[in-house]
Design a protein around this nucleic acid. Structure first.
Lengths: 122, 122, 122, 122
DNA sequence: GTGGTCTAGACCACG
DNA sequence: GTGGTCTAGACCACG
C-alpha cells in the first residue's frame, strides 16, 4: 500500500501515516494479519525520520489497530476492538463537516453515497 | 447563540469559534444578515484574547461566511457561495471518519442518521 | 513534587516520570486541577531532553490523567476516568509480584499493609 | 506446566518464561526438585529460539529459583532463599499498581482478595 | 511563553 | 534486523 504525505498539510506527518493505514485497513488494502513495512523501511522510502514513523506505529498500536513484536515488526491486528461508537472528537468533526457541506450546497445524497462506498464489502 | 470553548481541546480556540459559528449558520441559529457580536464583546464574554476572536472572524470572512465593515461590525453573509463541493481537507477527513467508524463497528445507519439530522429544514 | 530518575533503571525515563506523577496524584501530593511544571522547566530541572518530558506528558494526557493547553501548560485532571478495573498488564504484573513475594517469604500481612497505606484518605 | 507466550507483549519473551516458571513454583504447579524441560526441548515445543529459553533459565538460576547441571538439566531448587523482602523494583512496581488501581476506582478488597488467592495453601 | 513536531544521529535490548 | 529510547537542536502555531 502506498502512503502519500502532503508536506503542506497542517496534519502532522505521523498523523497522516496513521490515518492512511487506518483507511487502508478499513478499505481492505491492508488485510488482518498483514505485515507492515518496518519503521526503517518506511522512513527511508518516504524520506522522513524513523522517529516520525515510529510515532505513527505507536499510535496505531495504542489504538489497537496493529501489533508490534521485536522479531517481525508490525502487523495488522486480527481482531480490532469494536467500541461501537465514534470518539467525541470524530463525532464533532463529522457534525462540522456536514454543516459545511450543507452550506456549500453539497447534496445530501453525495454524502450518503460516500458512506455507502466506505461500508462496501471488500 | 452560545459559543462554548474547550480550552483543553487539541482544536485551537479560534478554530472552535469559527466551527461553531459555521454550525450555527448551517442549523439556523444564525440567520443570513444577522449581526455577530463585536470582537471585543465576544472576547470579553468568553474571557479570551481579542486576537483569538479576531482570527476566527478573519477566517470566516476569508471563507465567505461573514462580512465585516467598520461601522456595523460583522454580519452573516446573505448569500454564501455554494461551491457544491467539499474541500479536499473535508473530503479526506470525512473518509477518515467513515473508515474509523466502520472499524469501530459503528452502524452505517447511525452515520446516515447524522446526515439526515444535519440537513433537516430549519 | 520532586521527581527522581533512576538512570540505571530499565524503566525508560519518560515512563518513570509518568509513573511518579500518577503516584503523586494518587497519594495526594498532586491535587486535582494542580498545575504541573512546564515541559521545558521539568526537562531543565532534571537535566533531560524536552522530548522525553513531552512523551511522559502525552502519555498521561492519553490516559486521561492530565490535560494540556497551549496557554497554561499541563494540569491534573479534575475528574479522572474510573474504569473500575486493572489493566491486563497490571493484573499480570500484580500476580507476578505476589508470587515472588510469597517465594521470598514476605508476609501476606505486609502486602496488605501496603494496600491499606496506598488507599488511605489523603 | 504449560507456558504461554504473547509474542506481541511488551514483556520480552525470556521474561515471560521466567515469570511463568516463578509463578508455577509459587502456586505449586512446579514442585521443589522437579525437573524442568531442557532448553532445547522447551524451545522446540514453543517454537522459539534456544537462546531465549536459555536466557530465562540463566535468570532463574541467578535468582536462586533453579539449579542446573550438565547431566540432569534444570531442576527447581529444594530451598529457595527467603530474603523476607520484596526487591526494590518489585516494591516500586507494587506501589505503582496500587496507585493506578486506586485512581481507576478498583476496590481495595479486590486487591486484597488477589493476595489471599496468591497465598493460599497448595 | 506554551506544547507539539521533526530531524539526524546514536545507542539499546531482544531474538 | 527489529522496534524503542534518548539527545541536541530547531521550528511551528497558538495565544
Amino acid at each position: 500500500m502506498v502512503i502519500r504525505i502532503d508536506e503542506y498539510s497542517d496534519v502532522p506527518i505521523y498523523q497522516q501515516i496513521r490515518d492512511q493505514i487506518v483507511m487502508g485497513i478499513s478499505d481492505g488494502r491492508l488485510r488482518a494479519g498483514e505485515q507492515l513495512p518496518t519503521v526503517r523501511a518506511l522512513a527511508l522510502e518516504m524520506g522522513i525520520n524513523t522517529m516520525t514513523v515510529s510515532k505513527a506505529y505507536q499510535s496505531l498500536k495504542a489504538e489497537g489497530y496493529i501489533l508490534t513484536d521485536r522479531k517481525n515488526g508490525a502487523r495488522v491486528r486480527m481482531e480490532i476492538a469494536r467500541s461501537k461508537e465514534l470518539s467525541d472528537a470524530n463525532l464533532w468533526e463529522l457534525k462540522r463537516i456536514i454543516s459545511e457541506a450543507r452550506l456549500s450546497g453539497v447534496d445530501k445524497k453525495d454524502l450518503i453515497a460516500m458512506i455507502e462506498e466506505g461500508y462496501k464489502e471488500k
